Simulated scan of single mutants.
Amino acid sequence: MTTFPARSPRLLLIATVVLVLAGVVLLTIPHAPNAPATSATARATDSTSVPSTTAPGSRSPRTEAPGPAVTAGPVNASALPPHGEGVAGDTAIQKSLEDAWPADLAAADEQKLLAAGRGLLRADATGIGRAKWPALFGEPDKAIAPAFATARFRIQAAIARSDGSPDKAVVHLVWAGTDRGGTYTDRRITDWYFTRTSTKGASTWTPQPRT
Results as ranks from 00 to 15, higher is better:
A135R: 09
P56D: 12
T63W: 03
A72H: 06
A147F: 05
R10L: 14
G89K: 02
F194W: 05
T2G: 11
T211C: 00
L19S: 15
Q208N: 10
K112H: 04
P102Q: 13
R154F: 03
S203R: 08
I128D: 13
T45W: 05
I14M: 07
P134Q: 10
H83Q: 14
D163C: 01
A103E: 11
Y184K: 12
A40I: 09
D99R: 08
A35S: 14
T63Y: 06
A55N: 11
I29C: 10
A106Y: 02
A106P: 02
A143D: 06
F153M: 05
V17T: 14
P5E: 14
L27R: 15
E110C: 02
F137I: 07
T3M: 09
A77E: 11
V70E: 03
L80A: 00
G181F: 07
G57T: 06
F194S: 00
D99Y: 00
T48N: 03
L13Q: 14
E85T: 12
E85C: 04
D179W: 03
P74H: 05
A147V: 08
A44Y: 07
A115P: 01
P140W: 03
S47D: 13
K142E: 13
P82T: 08
S96P: 05
W192Q: 03
R180T: 15
P68G: 01
V20D: 01
D104W: 07
R43S: 15
R7N: 07
S60C: 07
S8N: 15
T41E: 11
P209K: 10
V50F: 07
W175A: 01
V18F: 12
R122F: 02
S60T: 13
H83D: 15
G89D: 06
S60E: 13
S8K: 12
P140H: 04
T71E: 07
K200V: 09
V87K: 15
A44L: 12
M1W: 09
R59N: 09
F137S: 04
T178C: 03
S165V: 02
I144V: 14
S58V: 09
A88C: 00
L11S: 12
G177V: 01
P33C: 15
R196E: 08
K168I: 06
I189E: 13
P209W: 08
A147Y: 05
D163Y: 06
P61M: 08
R130A: 00
S49G: 06
G57L: 02
V17D: 10
S96F: 02
T197K: 15
I128E: 08
K112Q: 15
E64A: 11
L121T: 01
A40E: 14
F153N: 02
T185E: 11
A123V: 05
D186Y: 04
Q94S: 12
A151L: 10
L121R: 00
A157H: 01
G201M: 08
L120M: 04
T195D: 14
D141W: 05
T199S: 12
P74N: 00
T206P: 03
A88I: 13
